[in-house]
Simulated scan of single mutants.
Amino acid sequence: MKQGDLVVRKSYGGDVLFRIAAFAGRQAVLRGMDYRLLADSPYEDLQTVRNPDELGVSRQARDHADESLRRMNEERKRQAERGGFISAIDDRRQPFFELPGKVLHLDGDANYLKKSMQVYGQLRVPAEGIHCHESQMSQVLLRMLPQFHPDIVVITGHDGVLKQREDLQQLSSYKNSLNFVQAVNIARDYERNRDSLVIIAGACQSHFEALLQAGANFASSPGRIMIHALDPVYVAIRASFTPFRDTINITDVIAHTISGRQGVGGIETMGRYRVGVPNMKVAKSDQNVNVV
């Protein structure tokens, strides 16, 4: 086995597809391919996977991600219909222009960041993505928050409960929850108003209560379960497209994440979406220019 190989853990029944990130003695450091889980395992417990499509759990995770994206697209269409808008897709026909909430997305996994940015792009969410190790996120935010002035910050990557740690209320029992908490503290110090800056934080099995106490609006994981790679993205998009005068429907947004209410929770928060008039693209196309 070598770094970069796809593997599953035999002792867990091959429940999660991982990529080998590094080696530490006789242990392999593993990063989940579909779930934001950081784990380690002895070599002898690993089985190489050559075709991920043969794994039912991996196919199921991708199917759930496709379904989540479909729901997001449908929600955008319903939003346009509720507002009496002509089209939320072709902005050249709309009499208004849109100002969705701007996202700053920090991710400890480069592959997940790439997937996340693709989804933001498909749904036309203005977003900046930064790949950095979870331990560096607080320092990165110190530099980047004043530069980007985001409406929404996503702080995510990989996490997990350390083996043989029974006290789930202690941050020392988690692989990266302390790093996420420190990053949330920086973001909340930058903007104290939870409606002016929406913070979404955490990964698999993260310390949900600590993240909320630090100032996150939404966090994982109330049930200390695995969350899908796109769950933080889904919440961010809903925050971006919920009108600024409306409260984000917590029950609905969490129910439509892939992991559900055991994976993601949050507090009442106002949306960050605005519209304005006129749409200059429409205005310019309607003008008749006479050349004398």
Rank of each mutant, 00 (worst) to 15 (best):
R93M: 05
K175R: 15
D189H: 13
F244L: 04
R62T: 06
S172R: 12
G56F: 14
D189N: 13
N51K: 15
L104V: 03
D159N: 15
V153C: 08
G32S: 09
M1A: 12
M117R: 02
L17E: 09
G260F: 12
K163E: 14
P278S: 04
I20S: 03
D15R: 15
G266R: 04
S11F: 08
Y174S: 10
A187N: 06
F244Q: 06
V282I: 02
V161E: 03
P126Q: 04
S285E: 10
A24L: 11
G32H: 11
A236G: 07
E44A: 07
Q3I: 14
D286F: 07
Q205M: 15
A22F: 05
G13I: 13
M280P: 00
N290I: 06
A283N: 02
V49T: 10
D189Q: 14
E98K: 02
V198F: 05
N73F: 02
L113D: 03
Q79E: 00
S206C: 07
S240N: 09
V119H: 05
D66H: 08
S138F: 07
V8S: 12
Y190I: 05
A110G: 01
N176K: 10
V7W: 03
Q169K: 13
Y174F: 15
G84Y: 03
V49K: 11
A39T: 01
A236Y: 07
K281T: 07
N51Q: 15
P222K: 08
Q147W: 00
G13Y: 13
H158I: 10
N179H: 14
T269D: 08
D189Y: 09
F23N: 01
Q139V: 05
P42C: 11
L6Y: 13
F23A: 06
A236D: 05
R124Q: 11
G266K: 10
M33Y: 02
L162Y: 13
V161D: 06
R188H: 10
Q169E: 13
R224W: 05
Q27Y: 14
G56T: 15
L230T: 12
R124V: 09
G265P: 07
A214N: 06
L123K: 08
N185T: 09
R76W: 00
G202I: 09
D109I: 03
P126H: 04
D90Y: 01
D159Y: 10
S206P: 06
G265V: 05
Q118E: 14
K281H: 09
S116L: 06
K2Q: 13
E191Q: 15
F97C: 04
R50Q: 14
